[in-house]
């Protein structure tokens, strides 16, 4: 599925005035009326999420990341402009309903949204809502749990609230995967996890992408985005600040700093060494390539030969 944003702007005040037109309760109108001026969460955003790509989304708090991804399955609609899925406008209710089954949205701390008595029922909630036959629901629940490394027979009848935080998050993921989405949209999927669980989850997400799923991932970790994303979108104050490959986006560390972000650590360190006179030619560095090139620059060992690849540092 190709998701396209066409000159999308979104204003919370705008949402209020739309509600007003729709004749909602007057009390609510009065509350909204107190909103200080027009606050635009998104301003003239145009971009296309290509089928099968891994799009990273970065931007500091309040830059519009969450608002952007809520547009991706029609949870909120643009105040101006439009969002389309394969050309169909999501403002159309029928389109939005069908897109919602094909675009799986995983919110921050998704384990907070677990609610059912058993793990099985929680994961089955989406497919059952889709009115699928029970044997299909069963297949999906088992497969989705397997995908996140859990066994339905072992864990299915347990209460999700008895599980560890990491397991709870896996169950929440499974609930979205059971919808068998084409596009997986993840808002800070590894926030609050320890480093090992973080690595596990990122590997899991990479495997979804490798299996052909389109992935949109919001993250504060530039290292994670650099390692995983095909393209990175940087938002600042609701505007597209940068959109390109990790090497393109992280080339200008100073510009990133101005919008409250930092380039990945190897990249930042490389530019500090470059200023100190080290010849470091690559556009994007990770730890391995950086160590190899530093070793080469200092004429140590066989550093240059141990570089994993000659290219963009994503090997």
């Amino acid at each position: 599925m190709r998701l396209a944003f066409e000159q999308v702007s979104y204003s919370y005040a705008g949402a209020a005035s739309r509600k007003k037109k729709a004749g909602k309760k007057e009390k609510r109108q009065a509350d909204w009326g107190n909103a200080p001026g027009e606050v635009w969460a998104l301003r003239n955003v145009s971009l296309t999420v290509e089928p099968g790509e891994f799009l990273g989304v970065a931007g500091h708090t309040g830059s519009g990341k969450s608002t952007l991804i809520q547009h991706m399955n029609g949870l909120v609609h643009p105040t101006e402009g439009r969002v389309t899925a394969d050309g169909a406008d999501l403002v159309d209710k029928d389109v939005a309903v069908s897109v919602r089954q094909r675009v799986g949205l995983v919110f921050q701390y998704p384990e907070n949204q677990l609610f059912a008595n058993t793990v099985y029922d929680d994961v089955a909630y989406g497919p059952r809502n889709m009115k699928l036959p029970e044997d299909e629901v069963d297949r999906r629940v088992r497969e989705a749990l397997l995908l996140v490394g859990l066994d339905a027979d072992e864990i299915g009848e347990r209460s999700p609230f008895d599980l560890s935080g990491g397991q709870q998050r896996r169950v929440a993921f499974a609930g979205v995967l059971a919808m068998e989405p084409e596009v997986l949209v993840l808002d800070e999927p590894v926030a609050g996890l320890d480093p090992l669980s973080r690595a596990d989850f990122l590997a899991l997400i990479a495997s979804f992408h490798a299996s052909g799923m389109t992935v949109v991932m919001v993250s504060h970790s530039m290292e994670d985005l650099a390692a995983l994303a095909d393209r990175i979108l940087v938002l600042s104050e609701g505007r597209v600040f940068a959109l390109g490959t990790p090497a393109e986006v992280f080339a200008d560390a100073a510009a990133l700093k101005a919008v409250g972000l930092a380039a990945p650590a190897p990249q930042t360190f490389a530019s500090a060494l470059r200023e100190a006179g080290f010849p470091l030619p690559r556009a994007l560095y990770d730890e391995a390539t950086l160590a190899a090139d530093i070793a080469a620059a200092l004429g140590c060992g066989d550093g240059a030969a141990s570089a994993p690849d000659g290219g963009g540092g994503r090997g």
């Binding site: 650590a265 190897p266 360190f269 730890e287 391995a288 950086l290 160590a291 190899a292 530093i294 070793a295 200092l298 140590c300 060992g301 066989d302 550093g303 141990s306």
Partner: peptide, 15 residues
Amino acid sequence: FACRLSLALRAAGVP
């Protein structure tokens, strides 16, 4: 990060 890089550098022969 600095520790990871320093270890990678040592492995590459940088003292």
